[in-house]
Amino acid sequence: MYNVFYYDTLVGKITIVENGNSITHLKFGEYIPDLHFKINETRLLKICRKQLEEYFKRKRKNFDLPLSLEGTEFQLKVWKALQEIPYGQTCSYKDIAKKINNPKASRAVGMANNKNPISIIIPCHRVIGSKGNLVGYRGGLDIKEKLLYLEKSRRLY
C-alpha cells in the first residue's frame, strides 16, 4: 500500500508518496500516482515535509530520508550522481555523463534527469546546460530558478 499526501510549499503544491518504508515520489502539483494509494499523512511523510520545510528555510542542506528508486541501471547511476552534487552548486549534463563513466551520454542523462521520481531531494534542479543556461525541468523553469536562487542566496526573494 502506498500513502500519499499533498503539501503547500515555497514552490507551490507538492505531492509526496511513500511505500510504508521509503519515499518513492516527490512531484509538483497534486500528482496522483498510477498505483494503489491512500491519502494518509504517515509519520514518514511528516518527516519528509519537515525536512523540506527546513530546506526551504535554509536550515537543511542534505536530506536524511529512506528512498526507494525504481528505474533502469542507467537511471539509477544518474540519480545517484545527482545526489552527489553539493548544495548551492550546479553542473552540466555532460559533467554527470563523465561522472558515470559514459561521457557521450549527455542526452541520455537529460532523459534520466527528467524521469527523476523524487525531485528536490534528488536535486535534478542543480543540473544546467553546458553554457550555464537553465534548461529543462519537470516542475518548470520558474521552480528550478527558485530552487537554485534559494540555495545560492542569503535572502529570500
Rank of each mutant, 00 (worst) to 15 (best):
L65W: 07
N19E: 02
R126W: 06
I16H: 00
P66M: 13
P66D: 12
P123G: 02
K38E: 09
T42M: 09
Q75T: 01
K80W: 00
D95L: 04
S119G: 11
I121A: 04
E30F: 10
T24E: 12
I96M: 07
K61H: 09
I85E: 00
P117W: 11
A112D: 05
Q89R: 14
G71Y: 04
P117C: 14
G20Q: 03
L76G: 03
S92E: 05
E30N: 06
N114M: 13
G71I: 05
G110V: 08
P66F: 15
G110N: 06
N114F: 13
I23E: 03
L69R: 09
G71L: 14
L65S: 07
H25S: 12
Q51W: 13
K77Q: 15
V17F: 04
K59W: 02
G88A: 05
N21A: 01
K98G: 02
A105R: 08
A105K: 07
I100M: 10
R43V: 15
G12M: 08
K46F: 00
K38G: 02
P86A: 04
F56P: 08
K94W: 00
H125S: 07
N113E: 11
V17H: 00
I100T: 10
F37R: 02
L45M: 11
P66Y: 15
F63W: 07
C48N: 10
K98P: 01
Y31G: 01
G88D: 10
